[in-house]
Each structure stands twice: as C-alpha cells, then as structure tokens.
Design a binder for these strands. Structure first.
Lengths: 168, 168
DNA sequence: GCAATATACTAGGACATCCAAGGGTTTGGA
DNA sequence: TCCAAACCCTTGGATGTCCTAGTATATTGC
C-alpha cells in the first residue's frame, strides 16, 4: 500500500459515529471495521508468502486440510463444511489444484453423488513446504502480543460459536 | 451456511499444529484463522443488510466516507487511501455508484490528473438510510461483549499501526 | 415399487480485490 | 525552457466468493 496515514481512519469513523448520535453502536462499528481491515492485511501477507509456491490461501487451506486427514482424502462436501466456504468455492479450488497435479478427484466408493478429493504425493510435499514458510514468515511474525493472541482466540471463538459456526 | 459443526475447526487446526511440532506458532495461526473466518461472517451479515438498498459493503463504505466529507466530495486517490483499498477498486465502486446515480465524477479544479467523486442528493439520502439499517441490524447486534469490543479495538488498532496503516 | 424429497457437485453470472500496463498531467532538476 | 520522473486514473486479466439453477444419485414415504 501507500504511506501510513497520519491518523487512524477507523478511529476517525468512530468519532464521526459518535458525533452523529450513534454513540451506542460506534464502538462495535469500529471493532467490526477493524476486523475487516485486519483480515485484509493478513490475507495480503499470506498470499505473498504462498506466491512462490503457486498457491493462494484458498488452495493452501484445502491442501492443509487434506494433509491432516488420515487417508489424505475428503469428500467435497466435508471440505466445504470444514473450511466453511460455499461448495462452489471448493469446486473452484479443486479444479485448479487438480490442474497443478496436487490433488485428484475420485469417486466415492458407496455414494455415487459424492466426489473424494485426494492429495497426490506432490501435493503433500508442497503442503509441507508451504506450511513451513507460513509458519516462519506469517504466523511466527504476526505482530500480536502473546496475551492478545489468547484474547483474540477467546473473543473470536465466542463470536463464531454464537454465529452458529460450531456447537462445541 | 450449513448446520453448526460438532467441533470448532480452528481449535482442531491448532491441535494439529501442536501435534506436528509447530506449537510455537499454533496460537497465532489459530488467532489469524479466526480473524479470517470472523471477517467472512461479518461481511455476510453486512451484505445481507445492504442488499435491499442495492449496495455492497465496498460501495457503502465509499458513500459513507463521502457523506462525512465537509463538501461531500473527495479525490479518488484520497478515497483509496482512506478506505485502504487499491485505486482500481475505487474506480470499480465509483463506476457502479455513478450508474446508480448516487455519485458523480467531476474534474479537480486545479489538478488535471485528479478526479473528484461527488455525492448526489440521492446518494446522501441512501447513505443515511443504509447507515440506519446497518446500525440497528449489524453493529447493534454484533454479538461481541462490551468489554470484548474494547479489547478488539485496542488489539487490532495496535496491529494495524504496526502493519503501517497509520502513524498516529 | 415408485414418486417426492433431499443431497452432492458443477456451470454460469455478479462482485470485489489485486497486479501490470497504458495514457494524460504535473513537477522538478539540468 | 524542457524533458524525465512522479503521480493519477482506467483498462484488462487473474482469483476468490457467493447465488441460482441444473443434473445426477440417494433416501423416504405412501
């Protein structure tokens, strides 16, 4: 991006909200806007780290998920549910990973509707290498204080549970 | 989306990271993944609330920004900087808002390179109405505890400053 | 057993984001 | 003064996400 702004645009927005008589929702507005912007920054870092591997975050997530599955294979609908994205997004990611030889589609042994995504050995190797780079370049240098990481996990975990992501 | 999962997939991923010897970055990984997912949930809520107005979040943000500018007008590059998105994204948003009659482009009085985005009266009215709905349906029902909102603003504010968003 | 309903995946379309490149305008140093 | 460098916006291309609809397969109920 460009040079840093002289002032925090989200703090400015929060003040604008308060000034216009919406003080009761100004803080949640600021928090939500901050989540949006933080996601954008983190995604950019991740994509930069993955670029040398020809991977995007969406494709990496799918590879990583498969690499943790015992058999190295998952039904498309399972992957969609675990990654919490629309089934068409999985179709898209599998198409591209398959072109790159990192996964392949195989029919489900008993359910003719279902397609299994299988990791190839190339896919497994690339997932390992990409994870190592993400760990060292992104997760290992997140810029979050250690106790703030715990706070984020707790706060966002509660939010996601309330939003219906999981019941646990 | 579908039904809630029986377990938190991000907590599972964190356990997987720890199990594979990446315990030192497992927590930041979980926090970052949670930010990504939370953004997705929030964006979906916002888009749902804005749909009746024919607005997307990107277009709404631009309208709101203009409505807070004294003159109701801003240079494209200024909007790009304040919204922290790529200039081409602003071009895209302005194209669509202009088609809808909510903004218009006008030449900068002194700098021939610059284009000003101006809010029309329809645009100003729609921004007001959309903001009211967002306030009541999204920001007013964020699902975040009040003290967690403060924590988020603080933690993500620090992160954004460190990331170079602003210097203040 | 067969029709109605539910589930799984994919095709097509609308949007948004970024990057790379191109054309016009300003600015600044030789 | 004048040309190169910097800046501003737009176009074109690649990706990802979602929604709607369509096809194929399973399951359920009468």
């Amino acid at each position: 991006m460009g040079t840093p702004l002289p002032r925090d645009p989200i703090a400015d927005a929060q003040r604008n909200w308060e000034r216009h008589g919406w003080a009761d929702v100004a803080a949640p507005m600021a928090a939500i806007t901050a989540v949006m912007r933080t996601q954008q920054i983190l995604l950019a870092r991740i994509e930069t780290a993955l670029k040398p591997f020809g991977l995007t975050f969406a494709r990496y997530e799918l590879l990583a998920l498969l690499s943790f599955a015992r058999s190295g294979a998952l039904p498309m609908n399972k992957a969609s549910a675990l990654l919490q994205v629309h089934p068409t997004s999985v179709t898209n990611a599998v198409d591209r990973l398959q072109e790159a030889g990192l996964v392949l589609r195989s029919p489900h042994p008993t359910d003719g509707r279902t397609t299994l995504i299988e990791l190839t050995s190339e896919g497994r190797t690339l997932a390992k290498r990409a994870t190592a780079v993400l760990n060292s370049e992104v997760f290992g240098q997140s810029g979050f204080e250690e106790q703030d990481v715990e706070q984020l996990i707790r706060i966002l975990g509660n939010f996601r549970r309330n939003a219906g992501d999981f019941s646990g």
